[in-house]
Amino acid sequence: MKTKVALITGGYTGEAEVSFKSASFVESQLDLEKYDVYPITISLASWFYVNDAGVKIPVNREDFSLTLDDHVLKFDVAFIIIHGTPGEDGRLQGYFDMISLPYTSCGALTSALTMNKGYTKAILADIPELFVANSVLLFDTDRADGARRVQERLSLPYFVKPNAGGSSIGMTKVKTLEELPAALDKAFDAENTGKQVLVEEFVTGREFSQGIFRNAADELIVLPATEVRTTRDFFDFEAKYIPGLTEEITPAELTSEQQERAAQIIKEIYVRLNCKGMVRVDFFLEEQSDRFYFIEINTIPGQTAQSFIPQQVRSYGLKESDFYTELIEAALRPR
């Protein structure tokens, strides 16, 4: 009998558009000889599956089941591909824990923690060979004098970003103090990001993104890194999703020593944060010091054909279908 997979997409933020594209690609790559796949859309209005006739079938939220032709279908595993809330911030994971449905992503606590960039940096700050940029974390109560606090503690230029956002939404590179108030307002007002803002000093260097996952044999696999070179000031939303603005080099041009050092750091990050499934770590390699600086971790990374993880999977020598099989089978292992 085939494994019944709920492929969960959508979400409550502007990242839903990206989530739909990721889910479409994952669905096209899943092994249909092993899995019966049911795309499930989660939105603020409803949770539903669309059958072959185009009819929306609501999800029973008591046990995450569907009623199809008077038959109740229960899933064996959830493949979460929602970027942002509620699929990346631990909310959906907590619900699945309560109904005992296995899923492919990190657990509820890790997912919630890693959506908070400031808290994540605090936990990772003492990992050997990993550095973090000087930063200030601002809460909504700090909004009135946030600019003053930043000026007192950090040196220009700054990166201003929502503390719990994704896809670089609400992010600004600030080069002058006059630009800071508007950048703070933009980050504070970004939808569904918790009204917390992280301001960091700019690190000059090369930017990389690198995936890691735990396979069905319980082995940690570090994928080849991707270097990001963009014509924009930084890797913002437009650079990520508008063709031609960014060059992505996979595998990245790193020395053997740099590759080994990065892999060790990423494994330590994965273990320290108690990650599950696949995650992606973004980092800078500072030009002058050759130090790796942590940017952020993404626990539900993009999965279009052009996204970093599929690029890295192919570079590693795996087919995407085999990679997604590893993730599903790993999720089904007894925890």
Rank of each mutant, 00 (worst) to 15 (best):
I99M: 11
I99T: 02
I99D: 03
I99S: 09
S100G: 05
S100V: 12
S100D: 15
L101C: 10
L101P: 01
L101F: 02
L101T: 03
P102I: 03
P102K: 11
Y103E: 04
Y103T: 06
T104Y: 09
T104D: 10
T104G: 04
S105G: 12
S105A: 05
C106S: 15
C106L: 00
C106A: 10
C106M: 01
G107Y: 02
G107F: 00
A108V: 03
A108W: 09
T110G: 10
T110N: 02
T110K: 06
T110M: 04
T110R: 06
T110C: 09
S111A: 05
S111L: 08
A112I: 00
A112P: 00
A112F: 06
A112E: 07
L113F: 04
L113H: 00
T114I: 13
T114S: 04
T114L: 11
M115E: 06
M115Q: 05
M115V: 00
M115G: 08
N116V: 02
N116Q: 09
K117H: 01
K117V: 04
G118N: 01
Y119S: 10
Y119C: 05
Y119V: 08
T120R: 03
T120D: 09
K121L: 01
K121R: 09
A122D: 03
L124A: 08
L124C: 00
L124E: 03
A125C: 12
A125F: 05
A125V: 07
A125T: 14
D126E: 14
I127F: 03
I127A: 07
I127M: 05
P128F: 07
P128R: 04
E129T: 01
L130A: 08
L130T: 07
L130P: 01
F131V: 13
V132Y: 11
A133F: 14
A133C: 13
A133W: 14
A133L: 11
N134H: 13
N134V: 03
N134Q: 15
N134P: 14
S135L: 07
S135C: 13
S135T: 10
S135P: 12
V136E: 07
V136N: 10
L137H: 14
L137D: 06
L137Q: 11
L138F: 12
L138C: 13
L138A: 13
F139N: 13
D140I: 14
D140M: 08
T141G: 07
T141M: 13
T141C: 13
D142L: 13
D142Q: 11
